[in-house]
Write a protein that binds this DNA or RNA. Structure first.
Lengths: 194, 194
DNA sequence: TTACGATGTCATCACTGTTGACAAAGGACC
DNA sequence: GGTCCTTTGTCAACAGTGATGACATCGTAA
């Protein structure tokens, strides 16, 4: 048995490899979702052995959480005046997806929803919603039932997000954005008004 | 090599076996979701060989669709008077889950959401929403933007359903149902009113 | 030089959904 | 009765998955 030397890829610092895996995973998970993407596919795209993926991130699920958990970036909108807030939030949701950062956040959220049968993913999703939507709003409302109302706002926003990016409702995707903003925004406002 | 005769289970008509598999699948899928349940587990619970599952239903995905696609049974509520409809719908969603039929429909919808990265599941989900919510409502509204508004109603209902049964939002789960019905129902009503 | 930790590779594991070959029971027809 | 054929059930195997652990190799500190 001749001992062929194993042809190793060029060595590099761990952080660099980790980043390559991270980028590949984010790209693939965003496009195709958790289940459709295998560890070996991520490894191939990152130019890396599959075992290295597990070594750096522990498991496929942890890699998913680390790459797909993003803040909704709705915090800025939350700071606006309370009485136009409904429409402002909906407009933010409806218009941002065409920009780069917004699209990523939104597809990430959709992927989170779909992978939410994993309990750790479910926890992350709950946390994202709480921090990104509910909590900033509770501080602004200040009424007794503020917490419930804030979480209902989160629910309603989640409904629009999943309809657009998980269910892919053709009627809503084709609808005029101004109409969407006005109608859904006013309904949202009804939840915010005391 | 002695030819041991294969110990077969008692024979029965195909429809009976099919039903056993169907029941087992519904039970397990409802409790644990699409991914967590394997074909072999369904087969074991039905007292059947795993290959028979595939033989009767074609694939795990088709079995899932056949067992989990249910109508929302919201049709009856949809026929009520238009001006109390928002609260009536929310009350229906919030109270029915404790009954048997309601719980099944709701957990089914949650499982559909989570498995919606499969394109056939996504189609079924879209169809369920259209038939169960959007279409009955469009007929009642009759305005020019009726279709968009009906689909927004569906989105908002979906938001509450996913918050409760997919995300498992603790605040909403613990909240008083009357408060939920009043607040979210009124917001929904804003979408229904012209 | 030696020793060691960091980095990369590979074989292998248990498990999954799915397939096709085979066995055996039950009814149809002569 | 005897001979087919369809129906029903069983089993072994396949390619794919996520994960693990043993091993090779590089770079560097002592």
């Amino acid at each position: 048995m001749t001992e062929r030397p194993r042809a190793s890829r060029p060595r590099r610092p761990a952080a660099q490899t980790r980043q390559a895996i991270h980028d590949a995973a984010h790209e693939l998970f965003s496009r195709e979702g958790f289940d459709a993407v295998g560890i070996r596919a991520i490894a191939a795209r990152a130019g890396v052995d599959a075992a290295l993926v597990v070594r750096h991130f522990g498991s496929k699920e942890r890699l998913f959480l680390e790459t797909m958990t993003v803040d909704l970036a709705a915090a800025r909108v939350m700071e606006g005046p309370l009485d136009g807030l409904g429409r402002a939030l909906v407009e933010h949701i409806v218009t941002l997806p065409s920009s780069r950062a917004g699209e990523m956040a939104v597809t990430s959220l959709a992927a989170l929803f779909q992978a939410s049968d994993r309990s750790e993913v479910e926890t992350a999703l709950r946390e994202t919603i709480r921090q990104g939507i509910a909590e900033p709003l509770v501080r602004r409302l200040g009424t007794e039932d503020a917490e419930v109302r804030a979480h209902l706002v989160a629910a309603q926003i989640g409904g629009l997000l999943t309809s657009l990016h998980v269910v892919h409702d053709p009627v809503l995707l084709a609808a005029d954005r101004g109409l969407l903003t006005a109608r859904y925004g006013d309904a949202l406002q009804a939840l915010i008004n005391t």
